[in-house]
Every structure is written in structure tokens, then in C-alpha cells.
């Protein structure tokens, strides 16, 4: 059995670890709240742009933008995979990669080729090791990414789609359900399918366009895809913080359990040595 001093140092070191995990838990909790606020702040833009596109797409059925057209056959698919930059957030990234790989595998088994664009360090290092075609990446976005930091990575995929290199595009990210639950989600970005406009939208009225409807629609669709990706990234950050908070909480709890167990062992060892000392003294006294 370990001696008293050894156990004491072990307890001290676990206590230090517990302090760190507890601090990380609290930091993650406050960052999660901010990330959730940011998530809410992205919503108005996405809703508005979606409304405008719906209206435009249905007011001008004769003009079909390339993003809205279904391709006759699909040969190559693109994926944008969103992950965190940092680890220590439970199984969040690995679960997402597993879901993504499963989907990618069914595509490859179906005779399709796959392009991947990664957002976040973890995805880059994961997909960098795999035999997939990595076409673009965006890393080190921090806790509050700006939309324009993603332009490059998204444009790589949009260009590939316009050139016909890829025939559909998916976004893989974590959806924030609540603090305890994050869902892996695979969303189809291209070809985009705006929902049918609601009753009030379907009245016969139209905008005055400057310079013209086509130009505005082209412009809007790029912004629309970008805003979807941006939303995915922001949502993923909220998931990351929530997941880290939960992981660090269970780490702190486990450290607490470990400390309790060790304390018990330590007390027993101490009691045993005292008992032994007393019996030795008594035996010594009896001998005299």
C-alpha cells in the first residue's frame, strides 16, 4: 500500500487538476451564453434573406440561377465540415466526423467522388489524414468569427459548383438543441431549394429592381449560402462550449470521487500506523 506522503501528494495533484477543470467549466459556461446570443443575432439576417430569395425565385420562374437548378446526374459531391479549433470538448468533433464519414462512404460506394472543405483545426487534421480531396480550409476563427473570414472557404466550393466540378454541396455541423444535446446535422446547401412562399407572400406584386432582377438574385444567393455556413459555424461554437462545459463538469466530478477514495485510503493507512505504534508501545511496556 502506498505510504501516507505519496497519497497526500497524489490528492494534492488531483485537486489541482480539479481546479483547472472547474475553471474551464465556468469559462465554457459564460462563453456558451455569449455564443447563444450570437446565434440569436444571426437569425434576423437569415430569415430576411430567405424571404427575399423565396419571393424572387417565385416571382421570376423563367430565370433559374445555377444554384437553384437540379443537376441531371451527380458525379462529385462537396462537403463543408465545421469543427472546433480546440479539443477537450467531449465527443463532439469525433461524433460529427463519424456521421460525416458514414455519409461520405455511402457516396463513395455509390461511385461518386468527394471533395471536402474544412472549417476548424480539428476537421483539417482529421480529413488531412484521410484519402479525400481537401480543397479548402478556414482555421483559427476564434470564439467570435466574422462572416468575412469564411468567404474564401465557401467561395472555393461555390466556384467548384459553378464550374461543374461538384454537383451538390453539403454542410456538416452540430446543431444546438440545448446544453445537454447537440445533433450532428448534414444539410444540403446546393442545389438550394427555397420553400414555397407563404400565403401573404404569394400576392401578385413585384419589386422595382436596380439594376435588374438577375443581378440582384445572383448577388443574394451567394450571400444566402454564406449566411447559412456562417450560421452553422456560430451554432457549432455554441455546441463546442456546451459540450466542453459538460465534459469539464464530469471531469471535475470524477476528480472529486477520486479524491474521496484516496482520502479514505489515506485515513485508513494513517489509522493503521497509529494502531501499530500503540500496540508496539504497549508491547514494549509489557516487556519492561
Amino acid at each position: 500500500m502506498a505510504s501516507g506522503k505519496e497519497i497526500r501528494t497524489q490528492i494534492a495533484s488531483i485537486k489541482n487538476t480539479q481546479k483547472i477543470t472547474r475553471a474551464m467549466e465556468m469559462v465554457a459556461a459564460s462563453k456558451m451564453r455569449k455564443a447563444q446570443e450570437r446565434m440569436a443575432a444571426t437569425r434576423p439576417y437569415a430569415t430576411k434573406i430567405n424571404n427575399v430569395i423565396q419571393h424572387l425565385a417565385f416571382a421570376h420562374p423563367e430565370y433559374k440561377h445555377v444554384y437553384l437548378q437540379d443537376r441531371a446526374e451527380t458525379k462529385r459531391v462537396g462537403y463543408i465540415v465545421v469543427s472546433s479549433d480546440r479539443g477537450l470538448c467531449g465527443g463532439l468533433n469525433n461524433n460529427l466526423f463519424k456521421t460525416a464519414l458514414k455519409d461520405i462512404k455511402t457516396k463513395i460506394d455509390g461511385g461518386l467522388e468527394v471533395d471536402v472543405c474544412t472549417i476548424g483545426k480539428k476537421a483539417t487534421s482529421f480529413f488531412g489524414r484521410l484519402p479525400v480531396n481537401l480543397t479548402g480550409q478556414a482555421v483559427q476563427l476564434g470564439d467570435a468569427p466574422r462572416p468575412h473570414e469564411l468567404i474564401g472557404a465557401v467561395k472555393v466550393m461555390l466556384d467548384a459548383y459553378e464550374e461543374g466540378t461538384i454537383d451538390s454541396l453539403y454542410l456538416v455541423y452540430n446543431e444546438f438543441v440545448n446544453t445537454m444535446t447537440q445533433d450532428n446535422k448534414i444539410m444540403q446547401l446546393l442545389p438550394a431549394a427555397p420553400e414555397a412562399p407563404s400565403e401573404e407572400m404569394s400576392h401578385h406584386w413585384d419589386y422595382i429592381y436596380e439594376p435588374d432582377a438577375k443581378d440582384v438574385l445572383d448577388h443574394l444567393l451567394v450571400r444566402y449560402i454564406e449566411s447559412l455556413v456562417y450560421q452553422g459555424v456560430v451554432e457549432n461554437i455554441a455546441c463546442e462550449q456546451a459540450s466542453r462545459m459538460v465534459a469539464m463538469k464530469s471531469a471535475s466530478d470524477n476528480a472529486g470521487d477520486l479524491i474521496d477514495d484516496l482520502q479514505l485510503v489515506y485515513n485508513k493507512a494513517r489509522q493503521a500506523s497509529i494502531t501499530q505504534e500503540i500496540s508496539e508501545i504497549v508491547a514494549g511496556a509489557a516487556a519492561v
Partner: peptide, 30 residues
């Protein structure tokens, strides 16, 4: 619906190229 940064086609192109170059670099980086 405001953009968050000044957008120009060549600027967008530059950031796309950067994202590509980054990916290639990280592949070599292993």
C-alpha cells in the same frame, strides 16, 4: 441586409485562393 466587410470580386477571389493554399499547406504540414 448589410455586408460585414467591403466585398469585391478580386478580394473574394484572393480569399478563396488563400483557403485553397492553406489546405494544401496543411496537407504537406503533416
Amino acid at each position: 441586409l448589410a455586408d460585414t466587410a467591403v466585398r469585391a470580386d478580386d478580394l473574394d477571389e484572393a480569399s478563396a485562393l488563400e483557403a485553397k493554399a492553406d489546405a494544401e499547406r496543411s496537407l504537406k504540414d503533416s
